[in-house]
Amino acid sequence: MRSLLTRNETLVALIILAFCAMTAAVDPRFLSVTTLTDLIRNGIVIGMFAIGVMLVLVSGGIDVSFTAVAAFSMYSATKLMVAWGVGDQMLVAFLVSALLGLTLGLVNAVFIGWLGLPTLIVTLGTLTAFRGFLLTFVGSQLITNVPPGMRAFSRSMLFRGTTADGAFFALPTAVLFLVGAVLVTWFILNRTMLGRSIVAMGGSREAAARVGVNVRAIQFFVYGYVGVLSGLAGIVHASLARVANPFDLVGLELSVIAAVVLGGARLTGGHGTITGTLLGVALIVLINNSLIMLGIPSTWQNVVIGFLILLGTGVPAWQARRRAAAAA
């Protein structure tokens, strides 16, 4: 019981409930299937990013380049689809974008795993470099006329319907990508030795190396995996928005990292759960949407999110310090 109360997950869940209650009090229409499907739709891309970032944090690193990886993969894949004349082959788009993401992720891995450079420095560098490379060599023109495959994908829904009071709701098929990312990552993290090695490495890299964990190989896996997730998130994002904008996505890094940290992952490594991450994402998406419903200017979003981060990470840290003081 005690451990349940002091967990980040519980705290975030409570904040989410409080927010829902507040918004519903102001606008009863908030409590509807439409709101739920809208929130899920808005959470798909951030959620996929967050799952990747969580894995990196658990492994003891950090990645801030994932948005640039996503933008690069998404835009290049769209261009290639047009150039190759396979505009209706969505599978090609997913494969190419994932592959490009993997390649860029492995570029990070080379600097981090092979040259042993600090992860923040490397990914800060590649964030700018990937973006610059994209805008200089691949293109900086908006593609508004996206290939037919992407348009079809954006229209494809798992289910749709109309509520009693006439509001339209639908859940896009794209949500399966988030579900897939969650299931695969959960399985890796909790059921495979690879995943446990990632957690162990985040707890103590030295100890992991001593028992024969191949730290370098694991870093290649982690950054490659995040690259693939980012590439997929990018193409999903472009499809849902029906525009491939090379200036898109970059700038979202901190919100995503905020969501993950709110969900209990520690910047020092070794801690982080899927549940927590999803709750963190839910909270961020909820705030972005419900503040509008509450009639609060959108500039307030950052203020609120900032305070929530201080609260969500500060309270557990403070509790931990008090526990430590009580034990000593």
Partner: peptide, 29 residues
Amino acid sequence: YQDFSLFPNLTVAENIAFNHQLSHGRRLV
């Protein structure tokens, strides 16, 4: 080792069994 080379973020059980699982070439936990 002097610092025990344990994983602070894992449970007692997993710390004890980790090497065993790894050295037996297990892929799943």
